[in-house]
Design a protein around this nucleic acid. Structure first.
Length: 523
RNA sequence: GCUCGAUUCGUCUAAUGGUUAGGACAAAAGAUUCUCAUUCUUUAAAUAGCAGUUCGAUUCUGCUAUCGAGUACCA
């Protein structure tokens, strides 16, 4: 209730201000984009599209140590495959270029200095070694070291040191950082579109590093706020892992005197079993992809991708959209356009969503089976060709129509139709034991004459003829048909065997029966 | 440990101060069939626990438990 009221008020305010919706997806190029990241991008995209806004891609590469070559291209390629179009940002440009933070390095320093001048931040000369020592010491006493108001006056900071000393240390090249001076004992009141109202006391927060001199780059916190402001971002939609830094970000906006955007923190994606959030490892272990597209790491490790595993992007997106959001109706199948129309941040759930690979498969089955015959044929024909089978679209479509309701992945198209194009040379031993006894084979021999009497084999007519013959002789229908099936396709499964016979034609059919009769020993 | 957040069938979730707590995936049973599937029809399956407010709470409040995130000169 509280939340709804807040949202209604916000929406009204936004409308009055006629504020343009601008959202950003801001991954750091430290590796392939995980499906949780894709969902974050998707929600941003849907929100932008729905409001006639702009979807920005910004690359947050302020950590020079964790940069992974190829990751940026991977992100762009994956978004493209998903149908998420970038309006502005890396790879397309825009009025606020550059959109790669490493290329914006020159921008941030003056903002950090502005904060120092305003008394909201300070220089700190402590080395990481000395800080590690302090942490270790605290830990040995069972305490946690926090760089906060209790220590900033006694450590090597511009608060303790004189202005001259600070200036000379900087001049002589000492390594420094700029830290945010967390105010003492203040209750920060925050609002989140998904979570509602929250508050936290600043005494529980520490003095985060905003700028590091070692590489002359800002940390995430500073770069993020500065860029969101400069790029006129209206809504920050990001993962829940950022929730603990929200008070800092509020305070940063306040210190700069900038209007802050709206915030929405998305719930996490959890692993299918056990504890914790979804990670790369889970996919390897449980056999499902964690990434939208395949990723090969520098040392040659291959991580599966949904694309390469045969998922259609529509299915992947539909599945992802429903992981943490629902329309409040019973509709589950959504095209991208439908998602754009019905999505709302207010209906995003607060708790983490456990990913279910079975459901992902179900979505793919749905989308694949509802694809056009032409599309499916275009997937099947190259696979047939790889196995030396040349065929025409018409024939491929005819085969597909027999097995359309049995496919979940494109590969199934081939495995389910291969025996229509390629005669079996091996026969399933289990089926042989069951359907290849003396009498079965006798019946099959008799059946040949039935087929020979036909000009062409047509499924319905053939079935009628067989039924008459079976009834007249009091033969078991099931056995007879399965023996035929075994001879024609080599296994005891698949669609109507007479449909298959009609598909391959009389000559091929008799050829296969003869081959079976000559090659399968009776039991 | 501390801070923040979360908790409805196995999973994703809907709904409500009074309902037989709804749907989907998965599971089970039956029907159909030449087999395997499909399809159809059924079934089973949940408000974490304890207090409080209330005529009445799963819904509101508090506590506990559990889970998650954060606690970096990473994002």
């Amino acid at each position: 209730m509280e939340r709804l009221k807040y949202i209604a008020l916000k929406n009204k305010k936004d409308m009055e201000a006629n504020k343009k919706v601008r959202v950003r997806f801001a991954p750091s190029p430290t590796g392939p984009l995980h499906m949780g990241g894709v969902r974050t991008a998707l929600y941003n995209y849907l929100f932008a599209r729905q409001n006639g806004g702009t979807f920005i891609l910004r690359i947050e590469d302020t950590d020079s140590h964790r940069f992974v070559p190829g990751a940026e291209d991977y992100i762009i390629d994956s978004l493209k495959w998903c149908g998420i179009e970038i309006d502005e940002g890396v790879s397309v440009g825009g009025p606020h270029a550059p959109y790669r933070q490493s290329e914006r390095a020159a921008i941030y320093k003056k903002y950090a200095e502005q904060l120092v001048e305003g008394g909201f931040a300070y220089y700190s000369f402590d080395t990481s070694e000395s800080l590690n020592a302090l942490r270790a010491e605290a830990e040995s006493k069972g305490e946690t070291f926090a760089y906060d108001a209790s220590v900033r006056g006694s450590l090597e900071t511009s608060i303790k040191l004189s202005a001259e000393e600070v200036a000379s240390r900087i001049a002589r090249g000492d390594v420094w950082v700029i830290r945010f001076k967390m105010p003492e004992n203040r209750l920060v009141e925050m609002d989140d579109i998904i979570r509602g109202h929250m508050s936290v006391n600043t005494n529980t927060l520490d003095d985060k590093v905003l700028f590091k001199s070692a590489d002359n780059l800002p940390t995430y916190h500073l770069a993020n706020i500065v860029d969101d402001h400069l790029m006129e971002v209206s809504h920050v939609i990001r993962g829940e892992e950022w929730l603990p830094s929200l008070p800092l970000h509020y305070l940063l906006y306040e210190a700069f005197g900038w209007e802050r955007p709206e915030f929405a923190h998305l719930p996490l994606l959890l692993k299918p079993q056990g504890k914790g959030k979804l990670s790369k490892r889970d996919g390897d272990k449980l056999g499902f992809p964690v990434f939208p597209t395949e990723w090969v790491s520098a040392d040659g490790d291959v991580s599966k991708g949904y694309r390469e595993e045969g998922y259609l992007p529509q299915a992947f997106i539909n599945m992802l959209a429903l992981l943490g959001w629902n329309p409040g109706t019973e509709q589950e199948i959504f095209s991208m356009d439908e998602l754009i129309n019905t999505f709302s941040l207010e209906r995003v759930s607060k708790s983490g969503a456990r990913f279910n690979p079975e459901k992902a498969k179900w979505f793919n089955t749905h989308y694949l089976q509802n694809s056009s015959d032409e599309f499916l044929a275009s997937l099947l024909m190259p696979m047939l060709e790889k196995h030396g089978v040349k065929t025409i679209e018409e024939k491929a479509i005819a085969a597909i129509s027999l097995i359309k309701n049995r496919i979940s992945f494109p590969n199934d198209l081939f495995t389910q139709t291969s025996y229509m194009f390629i005669a079996p040379t091996e026969f399933d031993p289990k089926s042989i034991r069951k359907f290849w006894k003396e009498e079965n084979v006798e019946h099959l021999r008799e059946m040949i004459s039935l087929f020979e009497a036909m000009d062409v084999v047509e499924a319905e007519a053939a079935e009628e003829a067989i039924r008459e013959w079976v009834t007249a002789n009091e033969y078991p229908m099931g056995k007879v048909m399965n023996t035929l099936r075994l001879a024609i396709i080599g296994v005891s499964q698949g669609p109507s065997i007479l449909e298959i016979c009609a598909f391959i034609g009389k000559d091929e059919m008799l050829k296969r029966i003869n081959f079976a009769l000559n090659n399968i020993p009776t039991k």
